[in-house]
Design a protein around this nucleic acid. Structure first.
Lengths: 355, 355
DNA sequence: GTTTCAAAAGTAACCGGTTACAAAAGTAAC
DNA sequence: GTTACTTTTGTAACCGGTTACTTTTGAAAC
């Protein structure tokens, strides 16, 4: 193991040329004579030469690496049991980013904050020269910290990372999604009274979804009591507990519980069931995200679909444009779409999507 | 944006010392006089200096980066709909790896194979000098390809990556998990006839689980017909379709359908429901992995739990030991544990785990 | 066989750090 | 104030590539 890798010097010597020539062969410079290139290529093959990307990155000032920063789950309470509960959404984004980056020849450097680095900015600072640009999820950076990093390296914020003049943002159309959800609930199911299961309160997406819900209910003459806004943390486990507490203190339930994401809807439905309440008969429950498993739940979850992988890909595109100094909108909003299934009260072939 | 970052030369000049001294200050060499160190530190702070890790990696031959290679989902059929369906398990491993790597000061370089690089080995080859070691999931490398990479960089294989003398392997105890599952099904529920929903057939984990099931049923005098081994691909969507086909051709169902992972159990239960078959009343269904949502399904899924994040962490530990030339077992087997819920036929408080 | 000039190949500096070795500075003893 | 020796700091080579600039090569024209 750990056998010494050959360098261009070894290749040059074996091929009887200079290192500059080897470098040119590596980089497909057209000014190489075919016979020379062949000589070099043969030597590379014989030595099983692989260029050192780190060295290349140093001298060219470009690493072909995109950094992706995200948060560890803050909830470590029940370690083994809840691991990764709230994470599916972020994970799908990571995949989308990775795939798109790969398509453009970039690798992804993962960097998480949370547990070890409560400030978040330290690892970003340290790695910032290893990377050609950053995609930052969650609340890794405070708004005030963004400029310090973005001064040296372009940043795209997404998935709850908030807004900043010093960075680009890719977000989902929370407003449109919630609006069409509410209009469906009102028009198709006559919903009047709404509840809201909240994600982490500071989260920009949570804030936007709650505000959108307030606006939409007002517009439709519906009602959203403060008592029916249930504080939670994006996780199923948390939602289960919080729903129980909510049921303990409320006798009079709203018509619908709009959850800020799918995981919490799962937990809420579960808790309601444990109290003998059937969804959607006794209360409708909706989600947000449309995680893959949403359609297999019982009842199949009515939710607002966003394509996390498309968002991840879009973030890469924005970042690459920024890196190339091409003009890009400061904020990109990705479409969301109502995905009607059964948990809102719609009926259909079991397992079929209604619309 | 893209403002030029200061280097140690800038710092040295400002502090009125040599670059060697700056480097020593950076690396906490004890032979620096306090007054000199302070001078340097002040200059670094004033310039907002951040060391360039790429350069550091080049000269020290150590990048503090662990590479993680995995496969894209092979199923891209229904693009938007099935995205990431089969992926939760891998994602949790990635998180586990990342967290443990971070704990030891390493970053993670993500590298996926599949779509763009059907061979898998090409990106690994290219990045191999950017990385201090590899963790390889799935079938990114064929067994024959492993030595070519591991000659230069240590490799840990896991999550279905197979075995190789030229690498270390971290695997889950498929045998023990399946054995305890079968013994529970036989002893508590009198199961005699078993079916198996297979993951991708070449996958080592799938092979091991099927073999373990064959062994266990034989040991208990049970029965596993070839006709009841349903070929599938690890995904819910695939399982739904394959279960339908299976139901079309079999009149006489076994007592249990043992699924090679949880996602497929979800799809199978869904398909059974669509045909009017109730789980566990008409047939029991079990999973493998214990993904976070398993306990919220209806019925709550009886499954074999493995801690994917612990496996990821273990892989990092093995890799670090290998990198340090410490002695490590060639294969590490992680415990699995039967998680009894309701889909096997056990009853309990709704939502409570039975045992 | 020269001369001319474009194309091909080589030399050496550079990217931003680390570090072996050499030089300078500081300390203690005389 | 020397001398002797230890500590601290500086110089320059090196990690493995790229590339500006220079030199060599070779083909075409004379």
């Amino acid at each position: 193991m750990a056998e010494q890798a050959p360098t261009i010097y070894d290749v040059a010597e074996r091929a009887g040329v200079s290192v500059a020539t080897v470098s040119r062969a590596l980089n497909d410079v057209e000014s190489l004579r075919a016979v020379t290139r062949d000589k070099v290529m043969r030597a590379m093959a014989e030595l099983d030469f692989v260029p050192n990307n780190v060295a290349r990155g140093l001298s060219r000032g470009k690493n072909w690496v995109i950094g992706l920063a995200f948060m560890h789950s803050p909830v470590k309470a029940n370690e083994a049991e809840v691991e990764a509960d709230s994470l599916l959404y972020t994970d799908i984004i990571i995949r989308g980013v990775e795939a798109q980056a790969a398509r453009h020849g970039y690798s992804l450097l993962l960097c998480s904050a949370g547990e070890e680095h409560p400030d978040g900015i330290a690892p970003l600072r340290n790695l910032t020269q290893s990377v050609d640009g950053w995609i930052v999820l969650d609340r890794v950076l405070n708004v005030e910290e963004v400029p310090e990093i973005s001064r040296r390296t372009p940043i795209v914020l997404m998935a709850g990372a908030g807004d900043s003049d010093a960075a680009f943002t890719v977000r989902v159309d929370n407003e449109g999604g919630i609006a069409s959800l509410v209009s469906h609930l009102v028009e198709a199911h006559g919903a009047r009274r709404f509840g809201y299961m909240s994600g982490l309160e500071e989260s920009p997406d949570n804030v936007a979804r709650l505000r959108a819900l307030r606006d939409a209910t007002r517009r439709w003459g519906g009602q959203l009591n403060e008592e029916d806004i249930v504080s939670c943390d994006w996780t199923s486990g948390g939602a289960e507990v919080q729903t129980m507490r909510w049921l303990d203190r409320r006798v009079d339930l709203p018509d619908v519980l709009v959850c800020a994401n799918d995981q919490m809807a799962v937990g809420a439905i579960h808790a309601l069931g444990a109290r003998g309440l059937k969804v959607p008969r006794d209360i409708a429950v909706t989600g947000f995200d449309d995680i893959p498993i949403a359609r297999y739940l019982t009842p199949a979850l009515t939710t607002v679909r966003q394509s996390s992988s498309a968002m991840g890909a879009e973030a890469v595109d924005v970042l690459l444009a920024a890196m190339a100094n091409e003009p890009v909108a400061n904020t990109t909003t990705m479409a969301s779409r109502l995905q009607i299934r059964h948990s809102c009260g719609c009926q259909g072939e079991l397992g079929e999507d209604v619309a």
